[in-house]
Computed example of a mutant assay.
Amino acid sequence: MSTIVFNAEAAKSYDDGPRRLVPGYAFFQDLIAQVLASELKDDASILVMGAGGGAELMAIAAARESWRLTGVDPSADMLALAEGKLRAAGYAQRASLVTGYVADAPEGPFDAATSCLVAPFVPDDGGKLDYFHQLRRRMRPGAPLLVVEGFVADEPGGFDRYMKSYMMYARLNGVAQAMLDRAVSAQASLHYISLERQKQLFDEAGFSSAETFFQALHIYGWIARA
């Protein structure tokens, strides 16, 4: 797992960044909640990886008042931001927050799991496969895993095309040059893969019926079954 962890300064500005840098960010939060609401029972327990900031936790908690949520993130500062939002909305009593990585998540088994903008932090040197293995063994058979990430074509120039789209989207959303420079630098340090490789990882980790349910430019949403 990457050692990149969002500190207190980054946490304060996090709400603004993804909404202006990630195509479809607000929409896919709501879409995830709607997909889960169509599949899960009232007493479901849901694991949310990369929960810092609280976007997925808030959207999912709002969809069904009886769901129990477990959020995991390596940044205590980001989880503090999430906790503040949950408390303000009256959802905190249904949420458990864990500082750490996927190996630190409770064993479950969970009725569903989400992983949004997380996997690119993990190198594809066995780490990505282990990440999805760890998720799979914490889920009930047949439970849905919803993954939303950016994907890069596995061909010459694939990453350059990805970055061109990424930067243009940000500029048209009014992202200041200083913020964009930091974001571009961060993107270069991540570990993007192709859509084909993601499907292969799902298969190798023991998931089935993997298919996409969302796309906005280079951002795709997947649903796979444990």
Rank of each mutant, 00 (worst) to 15 (best):
K41Y: 00
A82G: 03
Y169N: 10
R182T: 15
Y166T: 01
D42P: 05
S38R: 01
F27N: 07
E149D: 13
Q29H: 13
H218V: 05
Y162E: 11
Q34F: 12
E65R: 10
G17L: 15
I46C: 12
F121I: 06
A205F: 14
G100N: 06
I193S: 07
Y166Q: 04
A143M: 02
A113L: 11
S115W: 07
L69E: 06
A188L: 15
T70L: 09
E39F: 00
S209N: 12
A80F: 01
V22H: 02
S38C: 05
M78E: 10
A10K: 07
E196Y: 04
M139Q: 11
A119W: 10
V22E: 00
G53F: 05
F28N: 08
S209F: 03
H191T: 07
R20G: 03
A10S: 04
L217Y: 10
M49C: 03
P109R: 06
R182C: 08
Q200Y: 11
P74V: 09
R68A: 04
A44R: 09
M49Y: 04
T114E: 07
L79E: 09
E56M: 06
S208N: 05
A37C: 11
L145H: 02
G126A: 11
G142F: 01
R138H: 02
A113I: 11
P144E: 03
A61L: 03
N173M: 09
L47I: 07
V22Q: 03
V152Y: 04
V175L: 06
I60A: 03
D42E: 14
G54H: 05
G100A: 05
I60D: 14
A105R: 03
A105K: 03
M168F: 06
Y101E: 12
A11D: 04
A92P: 00
C116G: 08
R136T: 04
L57W: 02
S189F: 00
L129E: 15
